[in-house]
Write a protein that binds this DNA or RNA. Sequence first.
DNA 1: TCTCAAATAACTGGATACAAAATGAGTCAA
DNA 2: TTGACTCATTTTGTATCCAGTTATTTGAGA
Lengths: 242, 242
Amino acid sequence: MTSSAASGTLAGPASSEASTGRRKTTSAQVVDRLRERILSGDLPEGAQLRQEKLASELGVSRVPVREALHQLEAEGLVTLVTHKGAVVSGLSVDDLEETYEIRAQLEGWLLEQAMPILSERDYARAEALVVEMESDLRDESWSDLNWRFHATLYAPANRPRTLELVHKLYRNAYRHFPLPIRLTGGRERMSREHRMLVELCRKGDVAAAREHLTTHILLGARTLISRLKALRQKEAADESGR
Amino acid sequence: MTSSAASGTLAGPASSEASTGRRKTTSAQVVDRLRERILSGDLPEGAQLRQEKLASELGVSRVPVREALHQLEAEGLVTLVTHKGAVVSGLSVDDLEETYEIRAQLEGWLLEQAMPILSERDYARAEALVVEMESDLRDESWSDLNWRFHATLYAPANRPRTLELVHKLYRNAYRHFPLPIRLTGGRERMSREHRMLVELCRKGDVAAAREHLTTHILLGARTLISRLKALRQKEAADESGR
DNA sequence: TCTCAAATAACTGGATACAAAATGAGTCAA
DNA sequence: TTGACTCATTTTGTATCCAGTTATTTGAGA
């Protein structure tokens, strides 16, 4: 446990210190590492997180790992059961639906607030992102680009905390969908809806834009969730029929 | 540190264990304790939280205290600065305004969803709470009763996560206002607005009810915040002029 | 062979002790 | 007065030990 020669060991002082100028604490680094692995799906829903294993993998002691797990629990990424340990938390279908409803409400409001302030520059930037989404066909890039597109339209509302909250909901919901089923309704439909949204904003039709955005989110969610249900049923069938 | 005979020592296993049947972990108890003290204003904004002091006060070691602080940080109640320690976090005026705006959006939506399902029983319960608020003149009871009134009208919407989120925002915003200035516009106006809200729900006028609720929240916030500003300016003046 | 209970192992939660790192205050000299 | 330096305080991290709980295995009896 001394040499910490494991493959995934945390970066030495030099690397992270140099970039920020301010060295993060070990537990904060552990949080970042684990969050990344969870959000990326590397640690799938339901995975057991053993303190000792994580500690040795990362080359740290158990204390910062425990603190990291507590923090991740507060973020909703893991579930801590007393004396049983940490498990990467899942989200029920109901929870997912609710998350999307909250997003629809808050994003609709953000767009409404931003619209009077949106400028041609913002529209151009948003459309550039649509183009980027059309050209970058890697599935992994998509959800980030999609968020940036949306965020571009909300930014002028100047509601940083709301934006952060929505972003958190966005990431937390998205990770539950395996990559293959994320692109709801295909890229074409997404592009079409996104372009349409920008167009409505340009026209200055607040009500129509909000309506379109809300539908975009909720219908997307419905498709996504029904696919997830199908996938889970299939998995359950495979499991029992095996 | 051995005898743990301090006044605020955590309850022995017996008391909390008996009620739930499942003993909470020490760090969870510490979280509860600290959250309570912060939300009640006992630990005011900006207060330094010394690990060792808290640990000895509560009769526990530093480990659960640190874990608790990390969790509270994730909840937004304290700010952790590396190597400087934990401070009860404040909220800027901008943050407060934003919090109320989010509440207005989400609560408006909750009410809309709940309205078709609300029954005479719910109205009666809500009105009973209004009466209770009129008779219980203790300032400390008020914010809890107020929340219960609102929650009663949202409960049928059956959106537990949204309700929890809103509740968190509610508490987190409220604690920043010292007790004396909490009752915006006096009890009479509050009662009037609450009764009016119930009446609009009874009539089934969804749009009017939502509008009234939103205004109720946002105007209340504005009054509250302007008072807070005045208070802070006064404090600043006292400070420099002393 | 199957089932259930006791023994055992594994893991988490917590306490304590100690080392390391960083901050802030104070000191001292230029 | 300014600036560098030292030092006490505090947080952070590690190691070790122990207690309590859960999971697993073992073994006896049916």
